[in-house]
């Protein structure tokens, strides 16, 4: 299908504007040109991801990559992760969890819920960019036959 050729959309859910700006700058610096859609709150991000029907069909033909901050003002990143991973059309989307704490239990919980990469802020931006690039490229390879 033609729709499959759509490039990967990066969805960034991050309440701190500074963090969002830094992440974006570094993604760009790594040479990733994909569209980035930023959300500062969990509620609108989930509304976008799941669509009006709550099934995520809106994005079924566009593979997203999710950058997720765990501490959001209106809900926790864990809630979002759970919802994304329990949605049939979204559960294969790679999720990079970004957080300021390195609590082992929290890390474990994120991996248990299906997070692909867990990155602790303040980030080593070079490694962070590599992770983004690899996941991005991987997605591109997957999506562009």
């Amino acid at each position: 299908m033609d729709d499959q050729a759509k490039p990967v959309l990066i969805i960034m859910i991050e309440d701190d504007e500074g963090h969002a700006r830094l992440i974006e700058k570094n993604i760009r610096r790594a040479g990733v040109r994909n569209e980035i859609r930023a959300f500062t709150h969990g509620t609108p991000a989930l509304a976008f991801l799941l669509g009006p029907d709550g099934q995520g069909m809106v994005n079924s033909n566009q593979a997203p990559l999710i950058l997720l901050d765990l501490n959001l003002p209106d809900m926790t990143g864990i809630d979002i992760l759970q919802k994304v991973k329990s949605c049939e059309s979204l559960k294969r989307a790679p999720v990079i969890v970004l957080t300021t704490t390195d609590d082992q239990r929290e890390i474990q919980r994120c991996y248990d819920l299906g997070a692909n990469v867990y990155i602790t802020k303040p980030v080593d931006y070079e490694n962070f960019s590599n992770a983004i690039r690899q996941l991005g490229l991987f997605l591109s390879v997957m999506q562009i036959p």
């Binding site: 701190d16 500074g18 963090h19 830094l22 501490n71 300021t100 802020k121 303040p122 980030v123 931006y125």
Partner: peptide
Amino acid sequence: VSHDLRAPLVNVMGFTSE
């Protein structure tokens, strides 16, 4: 406290390096 104090610190560090 560590999370909330670290969040602005991440900005300071990140933008300093910028």
